[in-house]
């Protein structure tokens, strides 16, 4: 089989994605989560009389709690399969990745299972976030000036 035949075969069996549908689904679900974020900030400012920066911290924690709970109850995976980036890109995807890793590896033990695998999916976000923040911070401090 030549390379060309093989790539034709791969193309034939790759599932076709409906781009318009998947993109609009991501847009509306992601937008709705953003809307919920702003709503929660206003809600906490009004109810608890805290500053906006504190209220946004509470908002992040609330979203993390909700998405971890839905992941633990088991129906979040099905939603993510359909919506994909609409839920993966907001902070809900971060919480989902961490909770699903924790749930999956707990049965292999608390230290070697849960302990060493809880960051399996979110580790790259934290690692490259820290590295890039360090490099950009150095550039900002010494090249551009604070």
């Amino acid at each position: 089989m030549t390379n060309k035949e093989y790539s034709n075969l791969v193309k034939k069996h790759t599932p076709k994605v409906n781009h318009i549908k998947s993109m609009s689904l991501a847009f509306f679900v992601g937008g709705f989560i953003g809307l919920a974020g702003q709503f929660l900030i206003d809600f906490y400012v009004k109810i608890l009389n805290v500053s906006i920066s504190n209220a946004s911290t509470y908002m992040i924690v609330t979203l993390i709690f909700i998405s971890s709970l839905f992941t633990a109850l088991g129906f979040f995976d099905k939603i993510i399969e359909k919506v994909r980036c609409g839920i993966i890109i907001p902070i809900t995807g971060f919480a989902h990745a961490m909770t699903s890793a924790a749930l999956e590896y707990r049965k292999e033990g608390f230290v070697l299972g849960l302990g060493s695998n809880i960051f399996k999916l979110t580790g790259s976000v934290i690692l490259y976030g820290v590295i890039s923040a360090y490099i950009f911070g150095l550039i900002r401090l010494f090249v551009i000036g604070a």
């Binding site: 911290t57 992040i60 924690v61 993390i64 709690f65 971890s68 709970l69 992941t71 633990a72 109850l73 088991g74 995976d77 902070i91 971060f94 919480a95 961490m98 909770t99 699903s100 890793a101 924790a102 749930l103 999956e104 707990r106 049965k107 849960l114 809880i118 979110t122 934290i126």
Partner: peptide, 22 residues
């Protein structure tokens, strides 16, 4: 830290309480 720490704590306790579904 609020986001990361709460994600870790919540994930840990939920993994104690709930069983994986699939």
């Amino acid at each position: 830290s609020a986001g990361i720490i709460s994600a870790i704590i919540i994930a840990f306790f939920f993994s104690l309480i709930f069983e994986p579904k699939n």
